[in-house]
Design a protein around this nucleic acid. Sequence first.
DNA 1: TTTTATCCAGAACGCTGGTTCTGAAACTGG
DNA 2: CCAGTTTCAGAACCAGCGTTCTGGATAAAA
Lengths: 193, 193
Amino acid sequence: MVRTRAFNPAEALNKAVEVFSTRGYTDTSMDDLVKATGVSRYGLYGTFGNKRELFEQALERYADRMGRERFLRLLEPDASLADIRRIFEERIEMLASADRTRGCMLSHTAMELAPHDSEIKHVLQRFISRIAKTFAIGLAAAKEKGEVRASLDVRSAGDFLTGALFGLAVLASSGLPRETLNSFVDNTMSSLR
Amino acid sequence: MVRTRAFNPAEALNKAVEVFSTRGYTDTSMDDLVKATGVSRYGLYGTFGNKRELFEQALERYADRMGRERFLRLLEPDASLADIRRIFEERIEMLASADRTRGCMLSHTAMELAPHDSEIKHVLQRFISRIAKTFAIGLAAAKEKGEVRASLDVRSAGDFLTGALFGLAVLASSGLPRETLNSFVDNTMSSLR
DNA sequence: TTTTATCCAGAACGCTGGTTCTGAAACTGG
DNA sequence: CCAGTTTCAGAACCAGCGTTCTGGATAAAA
């Protein structure tokens, strides 16, 4: 018995992340998701529950991937300032690439949902504090190397970098030229020395 | 002839700004606007066109008020670093006040509409570059006083402060505690010295 | 006061979106 | 090859939204 499922839930979720990243929650319809994932309504509702739960799982996946693919190096004992800068540069690459449609899912969610949805807000706060902590760890390593000033409070500087990352996302979303984004990152980085 | 209009368009627009600031564009319905402004559908459509045009006018009004009420002091010849800091502190006051529902309309619009609406995007870019320029002018005055380091490029630092203001809005939207927001501002300001 | 152009509140309309339902297709175990 | 269960595509349903329409109310001009 049992007909086998014709799609890969992990891949479908990745596609969903893409769509939600470009249009946010409210402006993506289930139809958009059906088209983008290639999965039937039946499949989406069956595996992910409903739109809201699908979004939560997409958000989780987004944060996980970001942590794993971008921030992991900051946990290496020899992490350096260059690693931190690279995170910002990769972010520019993603946010201001050719099509210019992809946005930062965390920033977008913070503005769109968090103020009126305390569950999402808590999830978001967890991600944000994780990012800030990771920055702080990377900064501590950079400090040992003397790459940042000795007086730097790495904990609060971690919060600062996190906020700067979000600010960069807003600037990129409004379509500012790359030079502006690059200069923003330069200023951000030089504030650590 | 002619029955007189029973509402004040300027006040209605201010109310609309409030609503759009808290829910963004898509999530506020015309019904919300009718209730919040106390103006009939007929009145809203008659004076503002449609939802979209009403939003554009609200955005314009928001930026205008922000410029006039917050940024004007930076154009005084004796503007100081304290004036810049005050802008950030007032922002915290507004974004993290008791109810915690009011957001930054520019950041929200940047994430929600700009990527897929080039007209809104251009309007936004105009506002952003105006803010950055005003920051730069204030910084130039502060530089004359020796309040910021002599090597500071006020133009790019203006972009930086603008991005930081948006980053602050995202942090506040996700409900982070005031101390985090204050520390973010401290780090931002100290990067100028 | 009468007239009349305008305004108002709410009904109505058409459309879109999230969710559920349905009949048919498809895959696996026997 | 058949039986049975799950999956699929799309129709169907219901609610909400932007916009327009309508009949009555209103205020100024005559």
